[in-house]
């Protein structure tokens, strides 16, 4: 494992911890898209189907369990916890799941490396992860008021994707036959979706003003 991959995983982990911190300690999910969180739960559930049958490393198994567990507990918190659900901005979080899930499923059925249940589900999870942030980005744009933790959560998620691209570049040059078009293209699209957010994030950081996305 190279430094970019590890940094990417740690950034991903940090994003989840920031979100859990916000939800668990402040008991608020204001500005957080439940749709995006449900899509992430679906992403991990379909990607880690082989968690108990295909052993890679202790590290991988633990991280998979953390991502699965945190994704589902975040969804549970927002839907069921009596304090947290009150802060959920339902009226602005209106993105429809099936606009995202259905095209990804169809694409995975059409474009994959191998037509088996596991590989198609794995491919589906890659496509879905690429666009799962969309409801969150739409919600941020509609919410005039982005709090620090929400801004940091989205920034860390974007940073995780950018680091994964560096990881692929590194692996391409250091490992023989390391070519993965499906992963790369969906990963690149996923990272590009953050470009706009990154721009305004750095602007607000540089000018030391509150983060706000233009309508």
């Amino acid at each position: 494992m190279n430094i970019f991959r590890l940094a990417g995983d740690m950034t991903h982990l940090a994003s989840v911890l920031v979100l859990l911190l916000k939800i668990h300690t402040i008991k608020s999910c204001a500005g957080i898209s439940l749709k995006t969180q449900e899509l992430y739960a679906l992403v991990f559930a379909s990607r880690y189907l082989d968690i108990f049958t295909h052993y890679v490393s202790f590290y991988n198994t633990v991280m998979k369990l953390i991502f699965l567990g945190s994704a589902f507990s975040i969804v549970w918190y927002i839907r069921r916890h009596k304090l947290v659900r009150r802060s959920y901005d339902k009226d602005h979080d209106t993105f429809r799941h099936y606009f995202i899930v259905l095209p990804c499923l169809i694409l995975a059925l059409l474009i994959h490396e191998k037509f088996t249940f596991r590989v198609v589900m794995w491919t589906f999870s890659l496509y879905l992860e690429a666009v799962a942030i969309l409801p969150q980005l739409v919600l941020l744009q509609r919410t005039r008021n982005i709090d620090n933790l929400t801004g940091q959560y989205v920034f860390l998620l974007g940073a995780y994707r950018a680091l994964y691209i560096l990881n692929w570049v590194y692996r391409y040059f250091t490992e023989p036959h390391y070519v993965h078009w499906i992963t790369w293209i969906s990963g690149l699209i996923q990272t590009l979706l953050y470009a706009d957010f990154f721009y305004y994030y750095f602007q607000s950081w540089k000018n030391n003003v509150k983060l706000e996305l233009p309508a």
Binding site: H54, V56, N60, F67, Y164, E175, Y178, V179, T183
Partner: peptide, 10 residues
Amino acid sequence: TSNGSTKDEL
């Protein structure tokens, strides 16, 4: 490690 699998990634 490679040969058509990035499944060692998360």
